[in-house]
Design a protein around this nucleic acid. Structure first.
Lengths: 136, 136
DNA sequence: TAGTGCTGGTCTCTTTTTGAGACTGACACT
DNA sequence: AGTGTCAGTCTCAAAAAGAGACCAGCACTA
């Protein structure tokens, strides 16, 4: 699986690279995508893509996230190399979260999906309404 | 919130369109993205982008999904208008799932993220390894 | 000097989501 | 009669997420 010639790959091959014969651990694409599949990951990436934020700022910015999930999602994003965490020795100490180069790079791709969502949410909403009406 | 001029928007404004003052129900972008944030959504989209599949084929293709989650994820994707479900009156009846035009359109954007993941999974893996080593 | 607030979390408890796997019914094949 | 296939549903256990109390250390206020 040579990822350098990915542009030549068919969709089939891309899917295969996601499933990889059922072996999750050795499936890099699935592994990476799963890290972004959390409920809050893309939202926090979108926030941090704008500018660095501190913990409390993010909490206020996303009022419906629990502190627990904010901590955990930031931890995961940091672990995957998208987010940098820096502690400043103020009193009380403040912690700033910012995107790394890898994070900015990844957000470039994620951004396409966000743009699509913004352009097409009407269609999705209509589809939902139609589906629900048909079920009733 | 005029989604037609999205290309001119700053990242800040895009984030705002995701958070929208804390009102989830009125936040179209978050609403759409959340529908794709499930553990299996992008994987099944990737499979169906290649060609239509039947229920049992998908189950064999993704061995580590439970029937329960396969049913539910396909239902959700169908409700959002990405997937078309067609029952053929064979015996026993077979059900084919395929992408709609909206689904193909959305996958175009999702595809960017998949390509990025394929090109950069080494960097992510290295980041993880480095982070875990630093924590130890 | 006691009270209040801010910082970035952690801890516990409850609710929701997910996973594992048995079970269905109608039909074909053996 | 027994087995297999189809596309699911149902139940129960495990995992994940949400809600909110609690923490230490310091600054400011009354």
């Amino acid at each position: 699986m040579d990822s350098k010639i990915v542009n030549l790959k068919s969709k089939l091959e891309i899917y295969k690279s996601m499933s990889n014969g059922g072996n999750i651990a050795d499936c890099p694409v699935r592994d990476v995508i799963q890290g972004l599949s959390g409920k809050w990951s893309s939202l926090l990436m979108g926030a941090l893509a704008e500018k660095p934020y501190r913990f409390g700022e993010l909490r206020r910015l996303v009022p419906d996230i629990s502190q627990r999930m904010l901590t955990q999602t930031l931890y995961d994003l940091q672990r995957d190399g998208y987010v940098h965490r820096e502690v400043f020795p103020t009193k009380p100490p403040s912690v700033e979260y910012s995107l790394t180069d890898l994070g900015h790079s990844m957000f470039g791709a994620l951004h396409q999906l966000i743009l699509w969502a913004e352009l097409n949410h009407d269609a999705v909403r209509d589809a939902r309404a139609g589906f629900d009406a048909a079920q009733a």
